[in-house]
Design a protein around this nucleic acid. Structure first.
Lengths: 200, 200, 200, 200
DNA sequence: ACGCCCGGGACGGCCCGTTCAT
DNA sequence: ATGAACGGGCCGTCCCGGGCGT
């Protein structure tokens, strides 16, 4: 009995390795090229597999999308918690609105890369997104200075500003305006949540 | 001779009317369903034309996208100017973050509906977007209270916050969280640009 | 106005020619290889077109199947009427159970080639088949000798015997048993409907 | 040594049991959905096994098809013999053309369900089918009344009529015409082989 | 050595953006 | 302006092979 479990476990780990590679490749492609524009064949190829293997891991592309949303949002929540612990909201703003983040959408914030597409996904995907979004916001809200009353609302406003700023910066990339947008967004973000005792 | 000119002129007007209908239909569809997910056949059908007529108006779908970006951004700039003149930034925030705007992406802000897709478009489209974005921001910046020093940066930060907030609200639409997001975004937006008496 | 109609009419004829070629190619392939085993690409290729042209003629493969059922059954009804007029039921039996018919399913009776698949098709296809089947049987029943009381039932029984016999002969083809089956089937068919005065 | 043999024997029995379950599941699916439309995955699932186990039992789907043809035809021959022994040809006609047989193709006559597909199979499958068909016909021919001279030809004609009738009835199933077809086919079948007193 | 199931290609129907004769 | 036609891509499913483990 224990042997069987072990064996199953071992095989499961092998399969999970493939599954993880698929999810990683898909998350990268989705954020870089969009969901609709990312074909399964290309994703599977990135994962070192062929398209025929896809359906032993996922029932449909929609299921893969849900998995990618869940995984990438969880990763983001974890990263935000770490940055917040080390450098506070200032660190989050700096990292989020960095040129590196702007120039690598494939590895960056899923919200900045996918929000309009997520809004058009079926309910189940949106519900999943909301769940993880609230967790992301919660991580940020815990770093909001105590003198700001509604920390969750503040974190939400901050996150929205970050997402919007990054998208704007990406849409005008290859121009100096992009850096100005990042700077303006960072200034606005700081104004929103950094302690400004003279205002209270 | 004059008659001929007149006839040509007349025909040109008819053609322009068709072109305008195509752009209107496409703008609506792009904002509602996304660019990649909007087929030319459906757009042309909405415009009361058939498939084949498209290429006498545009060289490619990419060119249509550019035209739609330009036209919808111009419309937005005009609307913002009018709202700003009548009700100031407060009016802009209220209208932009209204439930009506959230629930009708097809008639709303092109940036909120399309930014991640625009970011993946070729350079020329992004250049065009930047041009119109700056005009939109300029309209808003003119309504920024004078005591705020860098009015353009403020307007940029405000616009980014509005766009991000609306996208978040749409991605969890039909959830009670959506209204909370709109409220939090509006609060943040007001904090960014509205008069703050204690600062005087 | 008349010119326009003419032009439209002319174009319609061109389109109908393509459509007819598609239906002919599909009917041939369906009867030869079965419906499920016949891909649209091969059918379109037979029709001298590429797969992309299919959907300007039919909304789906199912619609093509219906069209093929209707057309091939109509053809069969017409052929049976002609043979019956010239040579009576004896001619029908001889032609239907000929080696040529057995060896060319692609050009032969759709019922013999497709009945089990038709039985698994959606209702609309089966309804269509029934409609045309009754017409086929009616053509045969008109040639049933008057001394047989229920001519429609007799024609039905005859048609069933012909279909079953042809299918059996095809399933053992490449063996002398096939000819014996055709002969036995023909004998049975004649026993069913040819005038046997001593029995009444 | 003897133990080993026993173990081998035991294992062989287990393997044979698996094989039998596969054949049963496949026979059911083939007759219900057709050969081409029945996937191995579904068949193996019905048999309580997984996809990959298939190829330790059969070299290919075609081999499974042959096995299914052989087994189901043998079963049919046995059933026909039993019915003939108890109730003669009248019993065979009644049972074969019953509503129950029409409505349960998955458990019924393989010829009625599969003949056109069998006709398209490679030579070896058709040879196998012929072999078993002749046995089926022999069982029926033994019940043909002695006053009919060529009992095998009569049985062949009868079987063809039964098969054709059942297929027609199935192709218009859920229509009132279906029962009429069964009745007409039964009448024809009886006319072919049952005692005709006025001939004595 | 039977069974599990991941994986490989190929192809299925359908739809896309684009062209061109009318 | 029409819409048939093109060619290629989409997601999904097929049959089959083979490495691993009981």
């Amino acid at each position: 009995m224990r042997d069987k479990k072990k064996a199953v476990r071992y095989k499961k780990e092998r399969k999970d390795a493939s599954r993880r590679r698929i999810v990683e490749a898909a998350t990268e492609r989705f954020r870089r090229n969009g969901i609709a524009a990312s074909g399964l064949a290309g994703i599977m190829s990135d994962a070192g597999l062929t398209n025929g293997a896809f359906y032993s891991h996922f029932r449909s592309k929609a299921e893969l999308v849900r998995e990618c949303v869940a995984v990438s949002m969880e990763n983001q929540a974890r990263q935000l918690r770490e940055i917040a612990a080390a450098r506070g909201l200032e660190g989050i703003i700096t990292v989020y609105l960095s040129a590196e983040h702007r120039d690598n959408p494939g590895k960056g914030c899923p919200s900045a890369a996918l929000l309009p597409e997520i809004a058009r996904e079926p309910f189940e995907t949106r519900r999943l997104y909301e769940e993880h979004l609230l967790e992301v916001v919660r991580q940020m809200s815990m770093a909001v200075p105590p003198q700001i009353r509604d920390s969750e609302a503040s974190a939400l406003g901050l996150f929205a500003a970050l997402v919007g700023t990054l998208q704007l910066a990406r849409s005008v990339k290859a121009s100096e305006a992009s850096d100005r947008i990042l700077a303006a967004g960072a200034q606005a973000a700081r104004a929103l949540v950094l302690s400004q005792p003279d205002r209270y």
